[in-house]
Structures are given as structure tokens and as C-alpha cells.
């Protein structure tokens, strides 16, 4: 039963991923640079959202400070690339991710034992505010004007060297890396660890009773999500070639939350849908000066009122209802 179900999930998800990849890879041939830039940024936001949902949807941890790990990864990469330009860029990306995980481990060891739920959320918010303020005060990191002059590296792969600065090379590199990260997250969620996470999310007390070290698994979830986000942040640094403290701000931390809740918590694809919808909204309102807040706000409000379980949750309910051809009252989806 179990393996059959995950087998069909695997096939379906692989097919969806393949379609998305084809679209992303063909974009530079069919659209303008503006769209390609937005698509590249969107890929990073997708990883950002997916990793947040590993904590929330999978393990029941709410973080309000996820952006600080994005920023930590980005600044760590930029700083290391500046002081040690000889290091292989792949090592730098991995290092940035490990650094993000390490910070999360330290925070998690201190915090997760004692506080959970809203306390953990607000604690991460406080930490991210500290990161934000320090980034905007430290002269070596460029203060609030930002860390400038980040170069796109040359990637030597032994048999050949790719100059990521030329053409769309960096875009393709980023898409490849984001795919790897997303596959990694999928694998974690659908593997043994993911099932343990899920049992904690559903009932932490029972999981503990069954002999699961709840705190250790929460810590793992937090560290994996933070490390993944830190790599996404590191990828962002050469993409924009500049980093500003804004990427540690709480409004940026709100992004993965919005993506996930807008798209749907239960599905792996929820944050992806949410991020895409958001990007489309932003792109669509870009010339409607002065109206963008009202339009984006109203659409978000309508979506959340019409589909309280997120877009994907709403769709699947709708489909079920159509299939059964009976009226089923919309049942609230209780997540935690």
C-alpha cells in the first residue's frame, strides 16, 4: 500500500517537475531578459518556500525569521568569495549552506528544547531582526547600501570550465542547483525522515511515546531547511551581484509563509504554486503605479477567503466534490 502510493506520487511529481524544467530551460529562447530574470529569482523563491514548508507542513515548526538564513547564506558566500577568491565556487555554495545549518543548529539547540509554537516563531523573528540590524550596521558588509561587486564565478569541472558570467550560463546553473535542492527536499519529505517529521507534526506527544527523539528530529528539520535556504541565498548573491539587508527583513520572511499558505500546506507543490501566483501578480501590476498594494492585497484576501486551505487544497476539494457528485460541506483543514 504505502510503497504503491509513494510510487505513484513519485511518478506524478517527476512528471510535473519535468514540465516545469522544460519551461524554465526554454524561457531564454522565447522571452525577454526581464522575464528570464524574474524566472531565475522565482526559482530561488520556490526553494525558499519549499524549505520553509519542510519545517511547517512537515514538522509543525513555524519560523518567522526564515529570511535571515537566506541572508546569512548570501553574505557568507559573498564575503568568502571576496577574501578567498581561489576557492572552488561549488565549495563556497556548500560552505554557505553548512554555515546556515550550523547557525540553525546552535539556535535550535538553545531554542527548540524550551520553546515551540508561537514562541519559536517570535524568537526566530527576534533573531532575524538582529541579523537585519547588524547587516545594516557592519561596514565590512556594506551596511544598508549593500555588499557590492559580487562576481559570477568561473566554474571548473575538471574536464571543462564554464564562465558563469557570460550569457545565460548563470541562469542555467541556478536552475540546475535549485532543481537539486528541490529534489533533495522532496526526498527528505518522502523518505523515512519525512515520515518521522510528519508523525511529530501530527502528534508530538505520541511520537515521543513511540520512542522518537522529537527534539532531535525538529532540530534536523530546522537545520536542513535553514541550510537549503542558505544555499538559495548564496545562489542569489551572484545572481543580483549585490546583497542588501532587506533580504533579512521580516517582510521577506513573510514571503515563504505566504507562498505556502496561498498554495497549500499539504501538498509538496503548495509553495511552488504560491510563489508563481505571487510573481505573476507582481509582474502584472508593475506598471499600475500606486495601485499595486490594493490589487495584490485584494487578490490575496479573495483567495484566502475562497480557498481557506490554499489554492491546491481548494482545488482538490473541488475535484473530490465533482467526483462524488454529492454535496460535501467544505471541511476546515486543521493543520496543527
Amino acid at each position: 500500500m504505502m510503497s504503491q502510493a509513494s510510487n505513484s506520487t513519485w511518478k506524478r511529481d517527476a512528471a510535473i517537475a519535468a514540465i516545469i524544467l522544460v519551461v524554465l530551460v526554454s524561457l531564454p529562447f522565447v522571452t525577454s531578459k526581464g522575464i528570464v530574470f524574474i524566472a531565475g529569482t522565482l526559482a530561488l523563491h520556490v526553494v525558499f518556500g519549499l524549505s520553509w514548508n519542510l519545517m511547517f507542513g512537515q514538522t509543525g515548526l513555524v519560523s518567522f525569521g526564515h529570511a535571515s538564513f537566506f541572508a546569512i547564506g548570501g553574505y557568507a558566500f559573498a564575503w568568502a568569495a571576496k577574501i578567498a577568491p581561489g576557492i572552488h565556487p561549488l565549495l563556497l555554495f556548500a560552505g554557505a549552506g553548512l554555515f546556515g545549518s550550523l547557525v540553525a543548529l546552535i539556535v535550535g539547540i538553545l531554542a527548540l528544547r524550551r520553546s515551540i509554537g508561537v514562541y519559536f516563531a517570535i524568537l526566530t523573528l527576534a533573531l532575524s531582526q538582529i541579523v537585519y540590524l547588524l547587516l545594516s550596521y557592519i561596514p565590512a558588509l556594506g551596511r544598508e547600501d549593500g555588499f557590492t561587486g559580487i562576481r559570477r564565478p568561473r566554474l571548473s569541472l575538471g574536464f571543462t570550465t564554464i564562465d558563469l558570467a557570460s550569457g545565460n550560463n548563470y541562469y542555467y546553473f541556478m536552475i540546475a542547483m535549485c532543481t537539486l535542492l528541490a529534489v533533495g527536499l522532496w526526498w527528505v519529505m518522502h523518505g523515512r525522515m519525512g515520515r518521522v517529521f510528519k508523525s511529530i507534526q501530527q502528534d508530538a506527544e505520541r511520537a515521543a511515546f513511540l520512542g522518537i527523539d522529537v527534539q532531535a528530529y525538529r532540530l534536523r528539520s530546522f537545520a536542513i531547511a535553514s541550510g537549503t535556504t542558505a544555499i538559495a541565498g548564496a545562489l542569489y548573491a551572484p545572481w543580483l551581484q549585490l546583497l542588501t539587508p532587506e533580504i533579512a527583513h521580516w517582510t521577506f520572511s513573510a514571503r515563504p509563509i505566504l507562498y505556502t499558505l496561498l498554495g497549500g500546506v499539504q501538498s509538496f507543490w503548495g509553495p511552488v504554486v504560491g510563489a508563481v501566483v505571487f510573481a505573476v501578480l507582481e509582474y502584472g501590476t508593475r506598471t499600475l503605479h500606486g495601485l499595486s498594494e490594493i490589487i495584490i492585497g485584494s487578490i490575496l484576501l479573495v483567495v484566502v477567503l475562497a480557498f481557506p486551505g490554499g489554492l491546491l487544497g481548494g482545488l482538490s476539494r473541488l475535484r473530490k466534490r465533482m467526483n462524488r457528485k454529492t454535496i460535501v460541506t467544505a471541511r476546515p483543514e486543521i493543520v496543527r
Partner: peptide
């Protein structure tokens, strides 16, 4: 779930700014 009211209030924040 409480979490969904978060998006709603965030949307309201945007609308009130606009």
C-alpha cells in the same frame, strides 16, 4: 487553522497601505 488568518491580515495590511 489560525495560520490562514495570517495571510488575510497581511492582505489587509497591504490594502490599508494602498
Amino acid at each position: 487553522d489560525e495560520a490562514y488568518s495570517l495571510i488575510a491580515t497581511y492582505a489587509l495590511l497591504l490594502i490599508s497601505e494602498g
